[in-house]
Design a protein around this nucleic acid. Sequence first.
DNA 1: GAAACCCCGGGCAATATGCCCGCGATTGCC
DNA 2: GGCAATCGCGGGCATATTGCCCGGGGTTTC
Lengths: 214, 214
Amino acid sequence: MTAIRILLVDDHAIVREGYRALLAKQPDLAVIAEAGNTVQAYRQFKNLQPDLVITDISLPGGSGLELIARIKQHTESAAILVFSMHQNPGFALRALRAGALGYVTKSSEPEVLLHAIRDVYAGRHVLSADIAQILALEKLGGQQLALESLTLREFEILRLLVAGKSHADIAGILNISAKTACNCHYLIKRKLGANSDIELTKLAIKLHVLELLA
Amino acid sequence: MTAIRILLVDDHAIVREGYRALLAKQPDLAVIAEAGNTVQAYRQFKNLQPDLVITDISLPGGSGLELIARIKQHTESAAILVFSMHQNPGFALRALRAGALGYVTKSSEPEVLLHAIRDVYAGRHVLSADIAQILALEKLGGQQLALESLTLREFEILRLLVAGKSHADIAGILNISAKTACNCHYLIKRKLGANSDIELTKLAIKLHVLELLA
DNA sequence: GAAACCCCGGGCAATATGCCCGCGATTGCC
DNA sequence: GGCAATCGCGGGCATATTGCCCGGGGTTTC
């Protein structure tokens, strides 16, 4: 049996070092190349046609998601495993949607990674347990849809809220009672699944309701 | 000459693997122990009295900052090098203030890390170039000052808050009462001049306490 | 005209908050 | 040593805010 030929992509040298050390112990796995950014990575992929690509999400020179898409576009059958430190399920979803077969967080044990490599090579989907759990908890359909479930008024109030206005301010601006603004605030949080104003704010930013500049 | 005896602290097994692989090539450096959380780390430190500790900031079982403080309290002369993925200069500042001698980001080249290890062992301060630059720029920008008025504990709680934790969650994580977390929350808002959690969250993002994905 | 939405706000109990206090442990400074 | 300052911790308490449900009046749509 020939070893699985692997291309490593990660911008942290220390992490690549870790991969090499770990994978060197596996006779059926062979690291044939490494890359620290997307440009290098894509070039290596085209030249070497590895059996499997392990990549991080955050990479200099463009996101890992883009890299995945480009690779899949070039070789539809490419096996890609994402190994990221992000526990954010949004990344996982997007990575899988972009064409990755697996997504494993860096806090996973080495054995999990090794399993994932072999699973992905065999064409099976892999999702680390922590992410799976978070995803499962997140409502079906995701938040983008939730935003659309807001009524116009609610959306308006959300904007004012995240702009820093108090209920009283909003009451004044919209000529309604502060209690209405408060109720609306509550409904918005419920619809978006935010447990606190902090979560609400982060959501608002992620959903591009609020642009943070300056 | 005897080798520098090093204690590695990082919650990612793959990163520890990387360290070991990298440091094994250096005859003057010897990894004598590893830890994946603060409790383990502190115990190892007490038992082994290593010459140098390399640690991450985000660790399960309490922050790396606390670990640094505890270690310094136990052994004033301990040499501690922080090797973190956070480019946030707030972390660097706080780590140095807590007693670390060096702060290097994980995106640094291995040689930088090796140099840092030897510098810190020799009692010299080390700050990676990228952090130094950001720090310098922020000094000019102001505002960062308010953040610095936060105590270590407050900063820690702020991080947890903006990560979406409730007072009860924080109480559990830090082993304090929810009321204390609540009081701290209040003090943080007052110190930073935030009138609401929404403003607090936006501030946290602007001050790079909280990183939002793009 | 009925059903299904909005938007508006009252009501009320449960919680959280703002704010102040004091305790014990450090730390620093004379 | 001793005194002041600071920090982390949390109790107390009045007040404000919240979660949650309600109903009414106004539309649109079938």
